[in-house]
Simulated assay, not measured.
Amino acid sequence: MTTTLIYVMGPSGAGKDSLLAWVKSRTPLAARIAFARRTITRAARPGDEDHESVDEAAFERLRDGGAFALDWQANGLRYGIRETELVACGANGVVVVNGSRAYLDVAAARHPGLTVVHITAGLDTLKQRLAQRGRETAAEVEQRVLRSLSFRPPSGISVFDIANDGALEDAGASLQKLILDAANAVSGE
């Protein structure tokens, strides 16, 4: 059986975590879809994604030991997807990864044929969501939003854009359809 990797990315504040949680909670277990759990150098907080929290030293040991299939640094944090997540999930046909735009070229090189989904939102929406999180100063929020304008996918990589400015259900249904279609294609349905 073929495994399809779906790489979901987008700027901070676009609502990737919310969309992925929405889709995950509404995807039938029999759908042959797995959502890879990330390892992050950030303590778990209420409302955050379900991730493995480690400190910098532990992350480096894992990385040096070859534990990660994918790993990157963004916004002062380290992120990784353990090889075991992809191997264990791979038997299901489709693996969904919450990735990084800055790491897309490396992820595409390591996993040719991955499906890339770019979650977007308007500048005002991004600013509002980032300000509501309260993690950054107004200047840091502005810098993040401006960085979102500069993203261009690497040459030769097709990207599905999903706008997440309106109701979560609308963008969630679009993402879920894309993931379910991929699962159906893998299983030959």
Results as ranks from 00 to 15, higher is better:
residue 6 I to F: 09
residue 11 P to K: 04
residue 11 P to M: 13
residue 16 K to L: 04
residue 20 L to I: 13
residue 27 T to F: 06
residue 27 T to H: 05
residue 28 P to I: 02
residue 31 A to C: 09
residue 32 R to L: 06
residue 33 I to A: 09
residue 33 I to T: 03
residue 35 F to T: 03
residue 37 R to T: 08
residue 38 R to C: 02
residue 38 R to L: 02
residue 39 T to H: 01
residue 39 T to N: 02
residue 44 A to H: 10
residue 48 D to R: 05
residue 50 D to M: 01
residue 51 H to L: 10
residue 52 E to R: 09
residue 53 S to M: 05
residue 53 S to Q: 11
residue 53 S to K: 02
residue 54 V to G: 03
residue 57 A to I: 01
residue 57 A to F: 01
residue 59 F to L: 12
residue 59 F to K: 03
residue 62 L to S: 03
residue 68 F to R: 06
residue 71 D to S: 15
residue 75 N to D: 15
residue 76 G to M: 12
residue 78 R to D: 09
residue 82 R to G: 01
residue 82 R to N: 02
residue 83 E to W: 04
residue 85 E to P: 00
residue 87 V to F: 04
residue 87 V to R: 10
residue 90 G to H: 05
residue 91 A to C: 05
residue 91 A to L: 05
residue 92 N to V: 00
residue 95 V to C: 15
residue 95 V to P: 03
residue 96 V to C: 08
residue 96 V to S: 12
residue 98 N to D: 15
residue 99 G to M: 07
residue 101 R to P: 01
residue 101 R to Q: 13
residue 101 R to Y: 02
residue 103 Y to C: 00
residue 103 Y to F: 14
residue 104 L to K: 00
residue 104 L to I: 01
residue 107 A to D: 13
residue 112 P to V: 11
residue 115 T to V: 15
residue 119 I to C: 06
residue 120 T to H: 03
residue 120 T to W: 07
residue 122 G to L: 11
residue 124 D to V: 01
residue 124 D to R: 03
residue 125 T to Q: 12
residue 126 L to K: 05
residue 127 K to W: 01
residue 133 R to E: 08
residue 135 R to Y: 03
residue 136 E to F: 01
residue 136 E to Q: 14
residue 137 T to A: 08
residue 137 T to C: 12
residue 140 E to L: 05
residue 144 R to N: 05
residue 145 V to W: 05
residue 146 L to Q: 15
residue 147 R to I: 02
residue 147 R to A: 01
residue 150 S to A: 15
residue 151 F to G: 03
residue 151 F to L: 10
residue 157 I to R: 03
residue 157 I to F: 10
residue 157 I to L: 15
residue 158 S to N: 12
residue 161 D to R: 09
residue 161 D to F: 12
residue 161 D to E: 15
residue 162 I to Y: 14
residue 164 N to T: 00
residue 165 D to A: 07
residue 166 G to K: 11
residue 167 A to W: 04
residue 168 L to V: 03
residue 172 G to C: 03
residue 175 L to Y: 09
residue 176 Q to A: 15
residue 181 D to W: 00
residue 181 D to A: 07
residue 183 A to E: 04
residue 185 A to D: 14
residue 188 G to R: 10
